[in-house]
Design a protein around this nucleic acid. Structure first.
Length: 229
DNA sequence: GCCCAGGTGGGTA
DNA sequence: TACCCACATGGG
């Protein structure tokens, strides 16, 4: 009997197709995106990143040397811009001074050690650290986000109050440790969430997990009775 | 006008 | 450890 987390992954893959992803051109851009997207819609992050590219400052040294107010101005669309400007400046300082501006150098070494190193950076919490590890450094660290928590709570596989670390351990215990698998799984979760599992979108007809999800079952019943889902 | 969006850090009990 | 709160913009 396969683990339900594997079954769900297979169903998502069958429905959406294989997906590997993070919308960024360089490891450093992944880092910037990971910080800017904290509690923020990705569309807002895109505007901020476009501003940084237009200003030609999307590299560690240039970003570090950018005046504080100028950086705030450029990333304003992504929200929490004062806080995020602090985080970005702090990260760039560290990267330039201690790791030769190289994200891969920062992420070199035993996974748990590197993860602790990232978590010690102000502005880098668990999800940001795992996003950097997986999508920038190609290290097998599972990313848990709000989507993951919501979907798997609705499926009844989470109670909803588990800690980030508990959920991450659950996935890493069930899914073979592989960058490709973790990348694809998180990408599929995001795809599913954006399509069928928004916060105020409980009736998810057409969802590939219909049947496993209580909201999906409600939709199923409505459809069976000839009512709109 | 209101709700929501791929969190994090600091404070308090 | 477990809550609370501030942080801010843009789109539906």
């Amino acid at each position: 009997m396969p683990d339900p987390l594997i079954t769900i992954f297979e169903r998502l893959k069958r429905h959406f197709g294989q997906s590997r992803w993070w919308p960024a051109e360089t490891p450093f851009e992944v880092v910037v995106g990971a910080i800017l997207t904290q509690n923020t819609a990705w569309t807002n992050v895109e505007m901020a990143i476009a501003n940084l590219k237009t200003a030609d400052v999307l590299c560690p040294r240039k970003l570090r040397d950018l005046p504080r107010l100028r950086l705030e101005e450029l990333i304003k669309p992504s929200g929490f811009f004062r806080q995020k400007a602090t985080y970005l400046h702090h990260f760039c300082d560290l990267l330039v001074e201690q790791f030769d501006s190289d994200v891969n150098r920062l992420c070199h070494g035993p996974l748990d050690d590197v993860r602790r190193r990232l978590l010690a950076i102000k502005g880098v919490g668990a999800e940001t650290a795992d996003s950097i590890l997986l999508y920038a450094a190609q290290r097998p660290s599972f990313v848990v986000d709000a989507y993951t928590r919501r979907i798997f709570t609705r499926l009844g596989l989470l109670q909803g109050k588990e800690s980030y670390e508990t959920i991450r351990r659950m996935f890493m215990a069930a899914v073979p440790q592989s960058v490709a698998l973790y990348n694809a799984y998180h990408a599929l979760i995001v795809q599913l969430a954006k399509t069928f599992c928004r916060k105020k979108q409980p009736q998810c007809s057409g969802c590939p997990l219909l049947g496993g999800c209580p909201y999906g079952q409600q939709a199923d019943e409505r459809l069976a009775e000839g009512r709109p889902a």
